[in-house]
């Protein structure tokens, strides 16, 4: 297992990763994607820009969260990372590969694994371990190694005891962890999670977010978490806010959540604690901006009281 010093080494690496010299996991330049709706004769009826001039860079090892309400283009962006959609204009590089290059499509999908919203619709086998093995089977990995990978990734998400179970009998959070294990078994450098918690109860949501964070910290996997739950993004290294196909805000969670009014103008909420601190500050209490956790809030209030 990982001891504390390993964490420190990883943490230091992350700091160095901030410099330009380190490779980028995902880099997009002026990405535009249009949904074209046609009438019966094939004439263009309307064009919807789902992505409008999106330029982002994500460094290796980062935990990036993308926020946005329904129809903001966040899922469309996620599907681009996996080459399930190809940009109408602009380019997207995943691990240095252009997603327009059809010959690289399987390499791109292996490098950037994708977890979807509905756990039932992405599990293909009737036994947990067989489902986790599906990805490596497709990649042509030798049998012995498939077993090693399945065991390792099931352990990484804490579902090893359930390897012989039927996915139908698992809870939503457990199913989603199996789906994550299925992606981990393909040894991706980056996992894209497209609203993985939208269909789960609060407990399942916690389970999945904890698993994802652990994978990011222990295995050094780049994580791109798409969500509309604010509580899930406070641990991210970077938050990107999207609205109407455009990137409207970018920064650390603290920077983003300090701008309560701006977030609200994009029809988004802030975590409850942040909101409370904001209101108290407006009422005249000298609290700092962008309080993210209850502990932080308690400390700040105590400091105030003194």
């Amino acid at each position: 297992m990982y001891c504390k010093s390993d964490f420190r080494v990883l943490g230091r690496k992350k700091q160095f990763a901030g410099k330009d010299t380190i490779e980028k996991m995902v880099r997009s330049e002026n990405l535009i994607f249009e949904y074209i709706r046609r009438d019966e004769e094939g004439n263009v009826e309307s064009i919807t820009k789902a992505l409008d001039d999106v330029s982002i860079t994500i460094s290796k090892g980062d935990f990036v969260a993308i926020l946005g309400h329904n129809g903001s283009g966040k899922s469309t962006l996620a599907k681009h990372m996996n080459a399930l959609l190809v940009p109408t204009e602009g380019t997207l590089f995943v691990d240095g590969m252009d997603t327009k290059d059809e010959e690289k499509i399987w390499e791109i999908r292996q490098a950037a694994g994708m977890v979807f919203q509905n756990p039932d619709n992405q599990i293909i086998a009737t036994v947990v371990e067989e489902d986790v093995g599906f990805g490596p089977e497709n990649l042509g990995v030798p049998t012995k190694e498939i077993w090693e990978r399945v065991e390792k990734s099931l352990r990484a998400v804490g579902m090893y005891e359930y390897r012989k179970h039927s996915p139908n009998k698992l809870s939503g959070g457990q199913k989603q962890r199996v789906a994550i294990a299925g992606i981990m078994a393909m040894k991706p450098q980056c996992i894209v999670l497209d609203e993985p918690t939208a269909m789960l109860d609060p407990n399942g949501r916690k389970e999945v977010v904890r698993t994802v964070r652990e994978l990011n910290q222990k295995e050094g996997v780049t994580v791109l978490l798409i969500t509309h739950y604010m509580e899930e993004v406070i641990y991210a290294d970077k938050v990107i806010v999207m609205d109407d196909g455009k990137i409207v805000m970018q920064g650390t969670p603290r920077e983003i959540f300090a701008q309560v009014e701006k977030l609200k103008s994009y029809r988004m909420d802030v975590p409850q604690v942040t909101e409370l601190a904001y209101k108290l500050k407006q009422a005249g209490m000298p609290l700092p901006d962008g309080i993210l956790s209850i502990e932080e809030f308690v400390e700040a209030v105590q400091a105030c009281a003194k």
Binding site: W106, R109, G113, N118, N121, F134, N138, G182
Partner: peptide
């Protein structure tokens, strides 16, 4: 959905 998930896991 399933077809997309299978493709995302490199099924070909």
């Amino acid at each position: 959905d399933l077809a997309m998930a299978m493709e995302a896991r490199c099924y070909h």
